[in-house]
Structure formats: structure tokens, C-alpha cells
Amino acid sequence: MSSATLQDDPSVESFFNVVETETLALFEHLSFEFLEEFDVFAPAQTGRTRDHEPPELMRGFLHCYYKDIYGIRPVERELRNTVVWLSCGFDRPPSRDAVDRFLTDLEHVANEVFDHLVEQAARRGLLDLTYCIDSTDVRAMPADPDASKCYDPTKDEYYYGYGCTIVSTGQKIPIAAEFTESKQAPEETAMRVTRDALAVEQPIWMVGDSAYDTLDWHDHLLAAGVVPVAPYNARNTDDPLDIEYRVEDRIEEHSEDVQLKQPTLDETYNRRTGVERTNESVKDCGLGRTHARGRVHARAQVFLALCLRLVIAITNYERGDNPGSTIITV
């Protein structure tokens, strides 16, 4: 019996009418049919077809991550639940191979899927005029052969795993991100993620900590009409300047008419705590510790967590609730 037939059954229909689940709410305002447009999900040239379509598998993973269920086997077990697989649009429970294959294929288009959801958030006015950039740790299982020993300067400790650089705005809304080999990402990663963020919408301010005290980052933003706010790192020179923020020096290179007041810069920099809250909310969605073996599945899990955070924010907005909340109230 297909899911359509089951949902037409009076007893099942009455169940869905009476019991409004968080899973149904997650998918109420967003369509995932756009996934079918990606070539990676097309049937193989050998003629092999998929037992399940990408939209229902995406919904299945989002449901599981919302319920703190990670890993191929736990996800496959959860999707055996009749109410769950019906809610996600399956006509029958997916096999472990189908779950594994989808996660592997998703990694190839993870950025594009994330970008699509960012666009949906932007259309709903969930972005504001201050962007914040930061990196966070992604802890891996000891059995992950691709992960490595990384250093977290914030906590002054080593961990085993990867990293992720995130730009966020508004109420814990991630708008650009990149999976990295460690929390301390190279400058080119910061530049790439910054460019991705500016491609969404142009803010007024871009805030980062002293790790972003680089000339290229500042000059790129100023040339784009965005004011970068990052503390000046005097350790980068033998002849330190008498400034608090690098932009105080660089602004003169780009404009003779603009003057930045110290209190304004201080107030803007204090908004940086927003990206830390975003990082924590995305970790609640599955970014905190990967339950995957290998870089491909780890990266896919990170972007699924980012996507889930966006889906929750959009869902809460559409339901008239707080987009910054990490839960859905039904």
C-alpha cells in the first residue's frame, strides 16, 4: 500500500488530524522537491533507479537530526516507524543502503542545498544588517580515519575532529559556511565564506574576532561597502598602531569622508556573541559531534545540521513563533 493510499485511509487521516507532530510542522512550509534537479540524484547510467526519492530522504534525515538521532543505522531504524516514514513522505521504510547512498550523494551538493534554504530565509526577511563570522569545532568519533588532532585556542585544548567556519545574522541564522580540516581555518577559507555571505545580501557591518585581523579581509569588505569590525592584533607587527580595531587604520585607505566612532565600533563588536549563539544552536542540530566515519559523511552531517537550523527558523517564523528558538512548539 502506498503512502498516498495510507494517508487516504480514514483512520490514518484522522490520526494526522488529531496528532500534530513536530515532524509534520518541519515540512509544512518548505518543499524539498528542488533536490530532484541535481544530477547527483539522477538514475545511474546503468539503469539503476532509486527506491526512494531525495525529498523524502532529506525529510527523513531532518526528522532524525531534530530528534538527536545520528548515524546510518540509527537513522534507518528510526525510519522504520510507520508514523515517521509516512510523515516524511515515504511509501515504505528505506533500507540502510538507501540511507547511506543518500548521505554520500548529498555531500556533493551540500553547499547548494544549504544556499537554497538560506535564500528561503532571506525571502522571509530573517536576515539583518550585521553579519558575524567565526569558526567552531566539529568533534568526530575516534574511529573516523579522516579526522585529525586539532587545537581549539578558545578552550586551549586539543580535540579529534574537524572544524566549520560560519557566517550568521539575525536570530541565529547561518547564511554561509564551510567545512574545514580544523577549527583554525586558513585565511582563504575566511575570504571564501565572506564572499558567499555577501552574495546573499549586503550588510552594513561584518564582525569577527582578532583572528580576522588581516588586511585582505578588511580591504575586501571595505571595497564592497561593508564595514569590518575585528579587534586589532598588535602581535602581528613590531610597530603596533594606537588603535582598537583594524578598520580605524584601513578606512583612510578607502574613504576620506567616513569617520568611525569608538563607541559605535564597540557596540557593533559586542554583537559578535550572536555568532556564538548560532554555533551553539547548530550544534544542537547535529554539528557538535559527527556520528560518521570519513570526511564525506562528516561534511554531509555538518551541512544537514546547518540546513536543519534554517528549517527550524523558517518554520517558527511561518507559525508566528520565535525564529531564534531551536525547538518547534506544537
Results as ranks from 00 to 15, higher is better:
residue 224 A to M: 13
residue 95 S to D: 07
residue 105 D to I: 06
residue 266 D to N: 12
residue 8 D to K: 15
residue 287 L to K: 04
residue 167 V to E: 09
residue 287 L to E: 02
residue 66 Y to D: 04
residue 264 T to C: 07
residue 53 E to Q: 11
residue 271 R to S: 12
residue 180 T to F: 06
residue 152 D to R: 08
residue 129 L to F: 13
residue 42 A to Y: 01
residue 121 A to C: 10
residue 101 R to L: 01
residue 105 D to Y: 12
residue 292 A to D: 02
residue 43 P to L: 06
residue 316 N to R: 15
residue 226 V to D: 00
residue 67 K to L: 04
residue 272 R to N: 00
residue 314 I to Y: 13
residue 291 H to I: 00
residue 224 A to I: 01
residue 19 V to N: 13
residue 257 D to F: 08
residue 103 L to C: 03
residue 72 I to L: 12
residue 29 H to E: 09
residue 50 R to Y: 05
residue 187 E to N: 11
residue 150 C to N: 15
residue 127 L to E: 13
residue 329 T to K: 13
residue 135 S to P: 09
residue 87 S to D: 09
residue 13 E to T: 10
residue 302 V to S: 07
residue 322 N to P: 10
residue 179 F to V: 06
residue 164 C to E: 12
residue 13 E to W: 06
residue 139 R to H: 10
residue 141 M to W: 08
residue 273 T to V: 06
residue 113 V to E: 01
residue 176 A to M: 00
residue 291 H to K: 13
residue 214 T to W: 02
residue 84 V to E: 06
residue 55 P to H: 04
residue 117 L to N: 03
residue 184 Q to N: 14
residue 284 D to G: 06
residue 259 Q to G: 05
residue 194 T to E: 05
residue 107 E to D: 12
residue 106 L to T: 01
residue 276 E to P: 14
residue 79 L to R: 13
residue 188 E to V: 02
residue 79 L to I: 11
residue 235 R to A: 15
residue 58 M to N: 03
residue 133 I to M: 08
residue 105 D to N: 11
residue 286 G to K: 08
residue 200 V to T: 02
residue 6 L to R: 13
residue 31 S to C: 05
residue 10 P to R: 10
residue 35 L to F: 01
residue 168 S to N: 05
residue 325 S to K: 15
residue 63 H to A: 15
residue 181 E to Q: 10
residue 28 E to Y: 01
residue 72 I to G: 05
residue 253 E to N: 09
residue 162 Y to L: 11
residue 131 Y to P: 06
residue 292 A to H: 06
residue 50 R to M: 00
residue 253 E to M: 09
residue 316 N to T: 13
residue 68 D to K: 14
residue 219 D to H: 14
residue 15 F to Y: 14
residue 306 L to M: 02
residue 254 H to Q: 03
residue 270 N to I: 13
residue 149 K to D: 12
residue 113 V to D: 00
